[in-house]
Design a protein around this nucleic acid. Structure first.
Length: 521
RNA sequence: GGACGGGUAGCUCAGGUGGUAGAGCAUCGGACUUUUAAUCCGGUGGCCGUGGGUUCGAGUCCCACCCCGUUCACCA
């Protein structure tokens, strides 16, 4: 052995590079520029089957077709070779025969590998074994694949590789494509439903000077020429409501928010939210609309309102259960926190009595929230609205009519997951300032998730915002529900994982050392 | 951050009590003109996650660390 040590993987790659080089030596560029297909693979199959069905001699039917796709299997058998070709529409068997292609072209099949993209002109026919197949009249290599694909039978199961190299996951596990098609359809359906009802789709900043609209820790980033820090938004809420001040009456945004919190099966640092705001509406009216909208989406993407989620049957048919937060706590936790709104310690004692972990820093609102999360949420399998939340954990919601310690707020739960959050929007600037000040006091007491005072937002409310209701829906979780996935990472194309040292890693431009070096405009 | 499970060939996985690292698929060579997890014959291929330690000897035992998954805590 005179050569230096090569890994198995490198040997497999070297083989393919040599094959690629042979194409070049023959003057056949292994990475083509264009190929004229006459049809997709699914259409080729459909056209053939239609012709066959309409023929008196079905055995003799052939249909001409040019198709292209990735070769995903190869079965050589001497002077004939079978392969499987796949495009986005489906898979079809292709057939190469020595005496039809000629010896030279047939020999060159040896320089093809699984994973290569091929284009071919051929005749669709049915083999003796009954499989619809394209017989190649000519074929051409469209793009060479230089790395081996995962094994054909077991595919790719290693979750880490599936997430880090999603393209391999997609090639090896076609059902992954289906999950993300459905995600796209969920979003398209929502968008269509909203725009059809007069909602205007808008885009508001993701770089915020003051992170607001939610209780969460933000990511910090830095603008060089302004020489100041920005925060990646934790919610679009405050900007969307400024648009109601400005004169839009129905707006929505579907895009990413970022929260610098833990990662688990329900949380990714960047996630997609749909938020909508509707002037002259309140939270009860919005509950009706939420029901209508989401049951419509479920029907559009699953074919019905009833479907399986992780072994449970979920039924999204209207109407959905509506129960006040305190009633739900009485029902599922067996304690009544409602009478203790001015006695935080009594509430804490009751909560601890049923096994909840209550910290000293937690106020009444957080205790209620804790009990709900711990004892109520897991029971809410069928779509359920909990409504009327404590004031102190709802700083952007209007006080409930006739119950000023509560807010007109609801959350939607399905399959034990929080899916949505909504309220009658607080539009009294004096009240809003007080609520913000209360948050600021909580922050000063060490709660780093408490909200910041946003003076400009108060100014906007002072200009005047119409009564309105707003809703946020977690699109990733909605997608989990409607694709029967247990982890949020299965519905995010490129979920965030810890970085590992990449092979051939390069230093990124624009880093601290490179600052000022690269002029880009 | 804690607990539990995992990391062995390109992929999927085996490797009782420590003793030269295995299979299937893929790959390479050969046979084969209707196969489809094609078949048959032969071959190549390994920093056993990383770094220490114990030992004559470590994939295996000990310690630390890295990464992934589940879960608890926190959160949406």
């Amino acid at each position: 052995m005179t050569e230096e040590h090569h890994s198995t993987e490198q040997q497999l790659i070297d083989n393919r590079i040599e094959k690629m080089a042979r194409f070049r030596e023959r003057g056949d560029e292994p990475f083509k520029y264009r190929f004229e297909r006459t049809c997709s693979i699914a259409d080729a199959r459909a056209a053939f089957e239609a012709a066959e069905a309409g023929s008196e001699n079905p055995e003799q039917v052939t249909v001409a077709a040019s198709v292209a796709g990735r070769m995903v299997a190869l079965r050589g058998q001497g002077k004939v070779t079978f392969a499987d070709l796949r495009d986005e529409s489906g898979r079809i068997q292709v057939f190469f025969r020595s005496n039809e292609l000629g010896d030279d072209a047939y020999e060159r099949l040896k320089d093809l590998d699984i994973g290569d993209f091929l284009g071919m002109e051929g005749e669709v026919f049915r083999t003796r074994r009954g499989e619809v197949t394209v017989r190649a009249v000519t074929y051409t290599l469209l793009a060479k694949s230089l790395r081996p694909l995962p094994e054909k039978w077991h595919g790719l199961t290693d979750v880490e590789t599936r997430y880090r190299q999603r393209y391999l996951d997609m090639v090896a596990n076609p059902e992954v494509l289906e999950t993300f098609r459905r995600r796209s359809r969920i979003i398209a359906t929502l968008r269509h439903w909203l725009t059809a009802r007069g909602f205007l789709e808008v885009e508001t900043p993701m770089l915020h000077q003051i992170p607001g609209g939610a209780t969460a820790r933000p990511f910090v980033t830095h603008h060089n020429t302004f020489d100041r820090d920005f925060y990646l938004r934790i919610a679009p809420e405050l900007h969307l409501k400024r648009l109601l001040v400005g004169g839009f009456e129905k707006v929505f945004e579907i895009n990413r928010s970022f929260r610098n919190e833990g990662v688990d099966t329900l949380h990714n640092p960047e996630f997609t939210m749909m938020e909508l705001y509707e002037a002259y509406q309140d939270y009860m009216g919005l509950m009706d609309e939420t029901e209508e909208m989401l049951s419509h989406v479920a029907r559009e993407v699953t074919g019905g309102t009833s479907f399986e989620y992780q072994g449970q049957t979920i039924d999204m048919a209207r109407p959905w259960k509506r129960v006040s937060l305190f009633e739900a706590i009485r029902e599922y936790a067996g304690i009544d926190l409602e009478p203790h709104q001015n006695d935080r310690n009594a509430a804490a004692e009751l909560a601890e009595g049923i096994g909840c972990v209550i910290e000293d820093a937690m106020g009444y609102g957080k205790i209620v929230d804790e009990v709900m999360s711990d004892k109520v949420k897991p029971h809410l399998l069928q779509p359920t609205f909990l409504h009327d939340y404590p004031l102190e954990i709802s700083p952007l919601a209007k006080k409930k009519r006739g119950a000023p310690n509560l807010t007109e707020r609801f959350q939607l739960f399905v399959a034990g997951m929080e899916m949505g959050n909504a309220f009658s929007e607080l539009n009294d600037p004096i009240d809003q300032r007080e609520r913000f000040m209360d948050q600021v006091r909580q922050r000063e007491r060490g709660d780093d998730e408490a909200q910041y005072l946003d003076e400009d937002y108060i100014t906007a409310l002072e200009v005047g915002m119409p009564p309105a209701a707003g809703l946020g829906v977690g699109i990733d979780r909605l997608t989990m529900l409607l694709t029967n996935q247990a982890s949020i990472r299965e519905v995010i194309l490129f979920p965030q994982l810890r970085t590992v040292e990449a092979r051939g890693a390069v230093t990124l431009p624009g880093g601290p050392e490179a600052a000022g070096g690269a002029e880009t405009s």
